[in-house]
Amino acid sequence: MIRSGTSSALLILLVLLAAGRIGARLGAGAWEILRRDMPVLTASDVEVAAGEGIMVGLLGGFRAVTADFVWVRTNATWEERDLPATQTLIKLATTVDSRPLVFWINGSRMIAYDMPVWRIDAASAAGAGLPAVVQGRIVAEQAHAAIALLERARIHHPDEPLLLIEIGNIRARKLGDLAGAAALYREAALMPGAPYYAARIHAEMLKQLGRHHEALEWLVAVHRDLPRDDPMAMAEVVLERIRELEERFEVPASQRYLPTP
């Protein structure tokens, strides 16, 4: 009886192993395509998901709904200033559903702008105020964590200019890296579907860096392509800034930029 049971179990194991090998070959092409679209869940993500009780939803296919639930919880923990939970849930929401930009952008803002304040407040409440150097280190740490999140977003949304603009904002405001931010705004401005303000901010960054000639050349090139009838393009504002720079460089009237109507 025992021998019969063991031989039966061995037979089943062998059959399943053989099926596994054949199946892997049969479905290799399909799996390669499917895996690209799937959430990049790792074993640790699965642990977090199980802890949050969302495994059934996730495995059941309610991807968007599950991610939305996680996002609601993220906002609840954010209101409570619960840093570890907020960080974990941001990671989980973006992992479960990498499609909505709102998870990436708002999540990075929480990490870069709110979390340093929480950390500094928490440390200050425990005793005397934190030295400026330590505060600066906290701000930089959080900024780098937010940029890392946005870089992960770019893997899923490589053609999205808003992500580059967000990284640029954090570089400029939190890390004081104006040159890096300027390069990112420029890259974003040159992408299809980029908001008009990316080009204007790039010029402002160049001015702050003292690269006024470069800013003038950039603004002139931008203004040539701006639609005159779209209020969002703010062509008049761009022209105004061109004139300011021309006056600064005392460009003769005959050599000034002549916009086409």
Binding site: G57, G60, G61, F62, R63, A64, V65, A67, D68, W71, D97, R99, P100, L101, V102, F103
Partner: peptide, 16 residues
């Protein structure tokens, strides 16, 4: 629904 378009959301929910 926070991110996806309405039709995508309904599709995803229905598949689930």
């Amino acid at each position: 629904n926070f991110g996806s378009s309405e039709l995508k959301f309904i599709t995803d929910f229905g598949f689930g």
